[in-house]
Amino acid sequence: MSLEQVEQLAAAGIINGSFYALLGAGFGVILGVTGRFHYAFALTFTFAAYVTSVLETDGHLPFPLSGLAGLIAAAALGVAIERWIYRPLAHASGALSLLTIFISSLGLTIAGVNLITLVWTAFSRSITLIDVRPLHIEGVTFTTLDVLIVATCWLLIAALNATLSFTDLGRSIRAARGNPYLARIMGLEPDAIYLAVFAIGSLLCGAAGILDGARYAVQPNMGIRPVVFAFVVAFLGGTQSRPLVVGLAGLLIGLIESLSGLFVSPQWSSLVVFSVLFIYLVLRPLDLRAFRIQILSAMPDPARGE
């Protein structure tokens, strides 16, 4: 275990962690505001990557355009799912909506992933965003793509944070998140807000999918593991928390996963992450909530002019 190895693993942890942060922030805003267990997040993730990849290779569209198209496709898919699948189902299910929407989401993902396989085969595809060149800093290596990934993730998270804090839409969203009943009485339309939230959350999800496709490869099952991480990070950060806080939770998970490689063989890393999660949940009701409230109340809130 050398210092260089620690630094290298920490770098990997930051890169992965930023990715998890983006996932968590996107999933978290959907879950926190609408309360929907949007498992089909995995489908949006994959769909965005495919749209970008297909447009890039078959359609010969350069990256900025193909990436934009992917993002729009993701947002559109998310909105469509909310408008035509979740909303009518929620109205019909009443108190059971949490569970029925989850089942529906599951079915959508199974259908969608296999449909993608039918249309585009299981053959891996690629996405090229920028020229990938290695960078060496103080014995730690990463690539230009990694830098782009980290920058993009945090930019998007910050943008989401700012949107929620400063814009009218953001205020409406936060109101609906905190107290949907009251929000409706105040004249805010939850239906429209939900659509906006799904658009935003799916956009972030799509971005993550495109980045993942560029970093590794695009294949139909690429979204299945990330959606679990999205869920975990969103809860760890807190579904009512600010996106930046959720982002930090994601970073933490990424670092834990990566640094566990110092002590155990990499095949055990997911066990380490879930064990840490388990221990957190066991201890949670005792101290950590109070701890987090303290931290949050210490942070300045721009909305109150601090």
Partner: peptide, 18 residues
């Protein structure tokens, strides 16, 4: 040792480097 189907080999490669 790696996991079948893993996509992220950063830890393994870090160890190889050492």
């Amino acid at each position: 040792v790696t996991t079948i189907g893993a996509t992220d080999y950063s830890a393994t490669i870090a160890r190889l480097k050492s």
